[in-house]
Amino acid sequence: MTGSLVSIRNLSVSYRRDASLPSLGNIDLDIAVGERLAIIGESGSGKSTLALAIAGLLPSTATVKGTILWSGQPQLPLGGRDIGFVFQDASASLDPVMAVGRQITEVARTHLDLSRAQAESRALDLLRRVRLPDPDTALHAYPHQLSGGQRQRVAIAAAIAAGPRLLIADEATSALDTIVQADIVALIKQLVAEDGMALLFVSHDIALAAELADRIAVFRRGEMVELGSTDAVIQVPQHAYTKKLLDAHIGLDAAPMIAPTGHGHV
């Protein structure tokens, strides 16, 4: 056993006022070094609240109880250095008036002892790794000059620039079309494998999560209702809610909802 990267014990998050983020209750969860863990849930499940709590990004209105241990140490992980975070909306997480290259070098220089030249070369290398077309030009591009998928690649490059041990992707592919989504998921999978990062993949899409996660945790209304290996959760779900989610999935093999008709073709 390589040990836990993150140990969450009896974690509860609540809000003083009725807030837009749902609360969480009594969560026990370990994230192992290098594992890919998916957090699945619908709106109001608390899945994003959990991701923000692990990254220390909860708003000050939140009351947090319980413990989150990082590598068994009581000190908190540092955002950017120990944990990389990729959000759904890359345009909102990137600075619109800063060149893409500088956004990545800033992360690298903040957390690593690098000269400007070393940081720039690292940024270029990262843009290659996230497979941005023409990385030399992209270094000097601004976010609005890139497509949505390219912006998310830049956000991923910035998230992993300081070599974090945990990458959190919170609905990171939900705003992308299906083809770009599949590319980004493949990229994330490759990057975490190459760098030995653990991945916390937060998603509403259980089929997408099943394609890349080792384990799946199912959240509902602030509680974790099921946790198991991907195979176990998909093939032999224990909780009725997990079964409901699986049954509600409309995949390419779903029974048609409509009767075949005599409608001709165009």
Binding site: T178, I179, Q181, A182, D205, E211, I234, Q235, K243, H249
Partner: peptide, 17 residues
């Protein structure tokens, strides 16, 4: 390409819908 990109949920026991 569109069809290939759809996530597959391979369940061995298909539930009765």
């Amino acid at each position: 390409a569109l069809v290939a990109a759809v996530p597959r949920l391979a369940r061995t026991t298909i539930q009765d819908r």
